[in-house]
């Protein structure tokens, strides 16, 4: 009996246990299902979010691009005085858009990214093209006014640099016509330009023989090429002066950078705030700049060039890298040989 009872009780417990177990299982299955559903929901939400931000991106990119294209197309009707500002705003907006694209690169599919980038590049090119079409570089206008300026100097100088410049256009190494501010292909002349013609401009001197060139003012940069037996004087240049292929010349210059190439037997009276360099040169002699003229201080102020700092005797020779011996290509002009005052 005890056994039976015992057995019975055991069976009951088993059945109870079983049902409890099944309940538990069902419950767990339910929990699992809800969790799964929840997760699915979350997942779809997330992918929806990404799709959403991609769609958002595409929409705003498209509208901004359309907007930019419309304002670009309207460029023609913009007043000429406001054109510069107009284009500046356009380029600013393009770079803003570019930044937006790169910030969105994280979630964009590669194809969309590529497309957006291509569209941006072509937009940029279009703006640049339009800008060049509507805002031609000043020098076209400047050229005609320069002719007038040249006529003014004819009185004192009587030069024909404008005509001779045209002749030299065919020179093989001058692929592109030189900028408006220049003296080219002249000999036996005194050539002069004043502040109103050269301030903040870049100047070219090329193919001159036996000339004296006087640049009163503060030009931004000077390029010199193929000068023979010339004397060149210039006011302070806040940028660089670049000289090559000159012989038997005297240069009296003030500038920030001075680069001298393939030049021989020449004297330099210089005021250089960084360091002069020479390359493929020999017979070069340096002295401190000692030329003064009326209004020179104003030109220094205009140029921003320091009048105090002058490293005229610190020269780097790119063909002479030994530190322990002095370069044979240049030397300091002996004080007894220096010109004390310039009668120009």
């Amino acid at each position: 009996m005890a056994d039976w009872q015992g057995n019975y009780s055991v069976t009951t417990t088993t059945e109870d246990q079983m049902s409890a177990f099944t309940d538990k299982l069902i419950k767990r299955e339910e929990e699992r299902q809800t969790q799964l559903q929840k997760r699915r929901l979350e997942e779809s939400e997330q992918s929806f979010k990404i799709q959403d931000s991609v769609r958002n991106f595409l929409d705003s990119f498209k509208s901004e691009r359309r907007d930019l294209e419309t304002s670009l197309a309207e460029s023609k009707s913009v007043e000429s005085s406001k054109l510069v500002e107009h284009f500046d705003i356009l380029s600013q907006r393009v770079s803003k858009l570019q930044r937006y694209v790169s910030e969105s690169a994280m979630f964009l599919p590669p194809y969309e990214l590529k497309t957006a980038q291509n569209l941006l590049t072509s937009l940029q090119a279009k703006i640049q093209e339009k800008r060049e079409e509507l805002l031609p570089k000043k020098r076209f206008a400047f050229k005609s006014s320069n002719k007038k300026a040249d006529k003014r100097t004819v009185v004192s100088v009587g030069n024909k640099s404008e005509e001779t410049a045209k002749d030299s256009k065919s020179e093989d190494d001058l692929v592109i016509e030189l900028a408006a501010c220049k003296f080219v292909g002249t000999s036996n002349k005194t050539l002069q330009k004043n502040g109103n013609e050269i301030n903040q401009k870049d100047i070219a001197l090329a193919n001159l023989t036996d000339c004296v060139v006087l640049l009163y003012g503060a030009p931004s940069a000077i390029h010199m090429n193929k000068l023979k037996n010339c004397k060149i004087f210039s006011g302070p240049v806040p940028g660089s002066i670049f000289i090559r292929d000159c012989t038997n010349c005297t240069f009296v210059l003030a500038c920030q950078q001075l680069r001298i190439h393939s030049t021989t037997n020449s004297h330099f009276y210089i005021h250089v705030t960084s360091k002069a360099i020479i390359e493929d040169c020999n017979g070069i002699k340096f002295a401190p700049c000692n030329w003064t003229y009326d209004g020179q201080d104003e030109d220094y102020a205009l140029s921003g060039l320091s009048k105090e700092r002058n490293n005229w005797d610190s020269v780097d020779d790119f063909d002479w890298l030994a530190a322990d011996a002095h370069s044979p290509n240049w030397s300091i002009l002996d004080e007894s040989e220096r010109v004390a005052s310039w009668n120009v």
Partner: peptide, 12 residues
């Protein structure tokens, strides 16, 4: 050096 008036444009 587009700040120089004699500079060539990007297109040139």
């Amino acid at each position: 050096k587009q700040d120089l008036p004699g500079s060539l444009t990007a297109r040139e």
